[in-house]
Design a protein around this nucleic acid. Structure first.
Lengths: 338, 338
DNA sequence: CTGAAAGCGCTAACAC
DNA sequence: GTGTTAGCGCTTTCAG
């Protein structure tokens, strides 16, 4: 019994253990494991059996070191349960798969502290990163690590990073054009609370006010309600709107989830949609055409967003084209909520 | 000019490159990079600057080799766009995060060949795997690799693997109880086509027939329609049902997506729901309460499914409890579609 | 067909 | 504070 014993848990079983047990050299084991041609099939069998018995598993790291490594992409999103993200993820997965990249997924719940934590983890564990992030420190941490980095959906932040952003400006204009044509004059907005919290300048709210002014529309401060990013949040915000701003006849929301919550709440309160209140969402979720009434929305191609992000990450790898930006345009999809 | 030049692309910049440039030892660079205490802060700055300039990034693999490695979980699902999976993913992410595990996500589109391909990739790149898989070869490949493996949602396959499965048996009984109590006698089922394709014995269809028999209900073969796993698929299956089996008054579907497609199609055809046709789904997606009419469904705790899977994978790691199984019970949620 | 030597890029342990 | 010496576990030469 040795005086000192490593406490590293049950020590990893290595290729040498298998070699020892089988009485062959390490290389021969390697050949067997990797299915190389030059090996006697009997020896191979013997080795494979021994390996299985010992529970031998090659070390990813040792292999990665010696082989030309696979590239792993970190994908940072707020929350898989928000239906916006799965579509982006699908695009990322597709584009990553096409390049033979692996993708590790991290969620932040849009919490700034969690974003920082994820940033810390990411820099150590992936080769490139595409991220929905709001926190400056987190963004700086990842971008500053030197790895290819693409910032997603953060329209508020002026930056010299590679980004994929959504053209809110033209989106809001499309919404106003549509609503004004329908005769609305008192238009409210339900915005995302989390963006405001991030401390970044809120371009969207400003945009909303500016565009309203362009159209010569009145716009009261309390016509802009913040909301958590969910159906419940939208409903709560709508409740506030109903109480404090009954004169409003149309509301445009930060996204479809919020819009759906707001719309349902209006209905639950006995209001007709679009008769008493009209609603326009933002995102163009599949969900929007399933609800009642189907939601008018500013559709964005979320899948393409994901693909573009991966392409831009790839462009930052040695030999790529370098930094790039993509602006995703919105498309107004008129359904029955307006 | 050398006669031979390595074509390995732009050779990786290593810690030694930084050391050379800075005129210090490799170790000192390491200290600077890893923010270790015993280093002169001036030297540190100099090194960090040089590192950034060279674009130096530590190798994940070399680090992983020398440090005690992080564990990476492979998560194999069919498709992120199917709202069933994001909920599972959320559970997996949550449980994995709690253990400090990273999760790499792979999708198969339920295609058997893709499953095999993913299996091949997975065994080389992760330390444990939880997977929705139908293909025997793929399952065997991963399970046989010796890594902790948990098979998900594959109720049809008798197996001695660690699994998390859904209690379809009691689910179908709950559906029948409910439907029969509502006076239905001619009950159809829309099943998932992909499961049938997998060649595994289809327990669910058998179950459906068996339970119908128990209730003394007539059941025609064409009352069981296969469907692709989507709203469109459900609609198409419903169309067939309407044409070939007008006597059916209630339909239970393999999942909510299919049920929603079927229900909407019935409505589009001018039928009243639940008046003319009743619908019960399976899964309990959030979506189900948003559609019109809200869908009666057999709810399953998908998040817990994901968590359970991770726990079972952990149990298979050295020092864990070993193999385990979880059976997830369904809960009937009655809404307005019945 | 098999083995021996070398080294992937890094950090831990110990010198200085 | 900093450098030196050893490996981590594997695959890739290259010899036999």
């Amino acid at each position: 019994m040795p005086i000192v014993s490593t406490t590293n848990g049950p020590r990893r079983v290595t290729i040498d253990d298998v070699a020892r047990l089988t009485g062959v050299s390490r290389q021969t084991v390697s050949r067997a494991i990797n299915d190389k041609p030059q090996i006697d099939s009997a020896t191979k069998q013997r080795i494979l059996t021994a390996a299985k018995e010992l529970g031998y598993r090659p070390s990813r790291f040792a292999r990665g070191m010696v082989r030309q490594s696979t590239t792993t992409l970190g994908l940072v999103i707020a929350d898989v349960l928000n239906p916006f993200f799965p579509e982006v993820v699908a695009g990322v997965l597709e584009a990553a798969d096409a390049r033979g990249w692996h993708v590790v997924i991290y969620t932040t719940a849009s919490e700034l502290s969690k974003e920082r934590e994820v940033a810390e983890t990411v820099v150590d564990h992936v080769d490139a990163c595409v991220a929905f992030m709001l926190d400056s420190a987190a963004i700086t941490r990842v971008a500053g690590s030197g790895m290819p980095f693409v910032l997603l959906g953060n329209e508020d932040r002026p930056t010299q990073l590679s980004t994929v952003r959504i053209d809110f400006d033209s989106g809001i204009r499309q919404a106003f054009d549509h609503l004004v044509a329908k005769g609305h004059r008192n238009i409210a907005m339900i915005d995302d609370r989390d963006r405001a919290k991030s401390g970044a300048p809120d371009i969207r709210s400003g945009l909303f006010t500016a565009v309203a002014a362009e159209y010569g529309l009145r716009i009261e401060p309390h016509w802009r309600q913040p909301s958590s990013n969910s159906i419940q949040g939208g409903a709560a915000a709508m409740e506030r709107l109903l109480e404090t701003a009954p004169e409003v006849t149309a509301v445009v929301s930060y996204n479809d989830m919020i819009a759906i919550g707001a719309m349902r709440h209006a209905r639950a309160r006995g209001l007709a949609v679009p008769g008493d209140r009209a609603f326009v969402g933002f995102d163009g979720l599949a969900l929007g055409e399933l609800v009642d009434p189907p939601l008018t929305t500013l559709h964005i191609d979320k899948r393409r967003l994901g693909q573009a992000a991966v392409e831009q990450a790839a462009a930052q790898m040695p030999g790529g084209g370098g930094m790039a930006d993509t602006l995703i345009r919105t498309q107004l999809v008129v359904r029955d909520s307006t």
